[in-house]
Design a protein around this nucleic acid. Sequence first.
RNA 1: UGGGGGAUCGUCUAGCGGCAGGACAGCAGACUCUGGAUCUGCUUACCGAGGUUCGAAUCCUCGUCCCCCAGCCA
Length: 566
Amino acid sequence: MDKPDTTPPPNFIRYIVEEDNRTGKFGGRVITRFPPEPNGYLHIGHAKSICLNFGLAADFGGHCNFRFDDTNPSKEEVEYVESIQADVRWLGFDWGERLYYASDYFEQLYGWAVQLIKDGKAFVCELSPDEIRDYRGTLTEPGRESPWRNRPVEENLDLFERMRAGEFPDGSLTLRAKIDMAAPNINLRDPVMYRIKHDPHHRTGDAWCLYPMYDWAHGQCDSIEGITHSLCTMEYEDHRALYDWYLDQLGLYHPQQIEFARLNLSHTVLSKRRLIQLVQEERVNGWDDPRMPTLAGMRRRGYPPAAIRSFCDRIGVGKRENLVDMALLEYCVREDLNRWAPRVMAVLRPLKVVIENFPEGRVEYLEAVNNPEDPGAGTRPIPFTREIYIEREDFLEDPPKKFYRLAPGREVRLRYAFFLKCHEVIKDPATGEVVELRGTYDPETRGGSAPDGRQVKATLHWVSATLALPAAVRLYDRLFTVPHPSSEAGDFKQYINPHSLEVIDPAWVEPSLAGAAPGSHFQFERLGYFCVDPDSTADRPVFNRTVTLRDAWAKVQQSEKKGKGS
RNA sequence: UGGGGGAUCGUCUAGCGGCAGGACAGCAGACUCUGGAUCUGCUUACCGAGGUUCGAAUCCUCGUCCCCCAGCCA
């Protein structure tokens, strides 16, 4: 129905697929795959690949396989195979029955290796890892052939069989392809196909002590599954020649590999190595810490999956190096949440206001709109009492020109309630800190407008000081202080933002939030979007700030500051 | 200086020989019971030098700069 809106912008991969369909290269089929290694959590960079692969297949009436590239048991764990599937599902994609594992093909791969040996195109090598490196040559000099390169086929076959049987220790032997030690493409200098690892595998258990290298497995896995378009990141461009070589020697079907640039996001890091460090060194509280760029972290932070998908559509797909501004992701998050997140009131840093002409002990219920963007969302009652809390930063005793919130003698509107006028400022005599405001309300302004037509410049959010619920609120900010921590000099961790998490406890939220379910989203009016954290308990909900609202006042303050400074 | 890739607004991206477009960010304004949302307007780009062509971001040549590759990782 709304097809034009959902059609993603054009990109070079789409053109290739369209062209392939025109020429009938794959008979009009479009089969892609998402092939994660279960050695860590998925992050926003994976989301780009997921959206690309699943989206492309869906748009061309094909399908996308889900395949774990589980060829290295020493790094892989079931925890990850589970979290990865949960994350892809959460993102909104469905692979039906098409869940595969590279380990499903171990036997087939082994058979193909035997075939290459018989054809004289692979050999068992006894060089140590150091020696292999040494023999490989350098970027500018050719390598030297392994002394074991011309072993008779029968001997290779025998040794390879015994490698599988477990007769040799880890690292003692490898199976290598016999290609060309002088190839300018280093991937073609007799690459290792199998290494010995007496390591139990999360799926095959101890059936194998011989594991295929990714380069040996990947092309054939794609081929077995009939993948038409095998999308991967740029660093695999050099490997394509090797995948093609294997497929050619084996006489197998060739998928078409297309490389695209991986995503870089500002103010964070997206390499598994660095994310793992953050987790292991406890710079964050686990993989799903809301500051992490992982899907699990973003989910906990409150980023809706639709926002992440929209982001992936907007960033496009290209081949050049890029650094996408976090502001774009935040825009997508706000754009989505704005449409459907219910609005509530919460005060983070309370300043008590006593409304002197409002009777003590009286509670008046006012009607508040749940979502101005969605009339169907209805209204809810909120209690108004003699003592309320307003946000501390909404009052200034000596307001600058552009500040039009509350000040002595000034009148403002309390959202969905009454006009409030401030008469008196009570301070701590010792510190001079404002501790309480005294004022009066105008009963005639119930609901928020004055019968006499007088206007106020500001509307403040508030909660009843007697009826509000205490809650813990976690304010998150960007994890790093610089746009591109991993390209900065020195250890990336020195650029961690020391203020990336601030906990406010207690903050005060309106009573309707009692029992809010973990994972549910709200807009705290004038403050931002918040998501209920799983750490919440019955008597103390915990809210994570997903993202702030766009803040025009903050910008005014900033530009004033800059103006003064220069 | 072996091989592979890439250079378009501040950022991301479109363009496929015919007016360089969009989004985010920024700026200005309108509107507003959220300084939210919405709406309007504005600023800003083809890495460089030659060539082909009536016409070049696009084709050709020569440069420059950036990224990737020397794991028994993926």
